[in-house]
Simulated scan of single mutants.
Amino acid sequence: MTNEGGQELWNRGVNMGHGLNRMNRSHRAKLPIVIPEGQIRPVVPFIAAKYATKINIAVRNHVPMLTHWKLYKHRLAVIETFLRILRAKFNIDTNDAVVKNGCLEMMKSAVRQQRHNLKKDFFDPFPLHLVTKTSPIKSTSNDEWIALVEMWKNPKKNGGMSKEQR
Rank of each mutant, 00 (worst) to 15 (best):
N3S: 13
G6R: 15
W10G: 02
R12F: 04
R12K: 08
R12Y: 03
N15Y: 08
N24W: 00
R25G: 10
R25T: 03
R25L: 09
K30V: 10
I33G: 01
V34I: 12
I35D: 04
Q39Y: 14
R41I: 14
P42R: 01
P42F: 02
V43R: 15
I47K: 05
A49H: 12
T53I: 11
K54S: 15
K54E: 15
N56R: 15
A58W: 05
R60L: 11
V63I: 15
M65F: 05
K73F: 15
H74D: 15
E80I: 02
T81D: 14
I92T: 01
I92F: 01
I92L: 00
D93Y: 01
D96T: 00
D96E: 09
D96W: 01
A97C: 05
A97T: 11
V99D: 09
K100T: 11
M107N: 04
Q113T: 13
D121Q: 12
D124H: 02
P125T: 06
F126H: 06
F126S: 06
F126K: 04
T134F: 02
S135C: 05
P136F: 01
I146Q: 14
I146W: 00
A147N: 11
A147Q: 03
V149M: 05
K153Y: 08
S162R: 11
R166A: 04
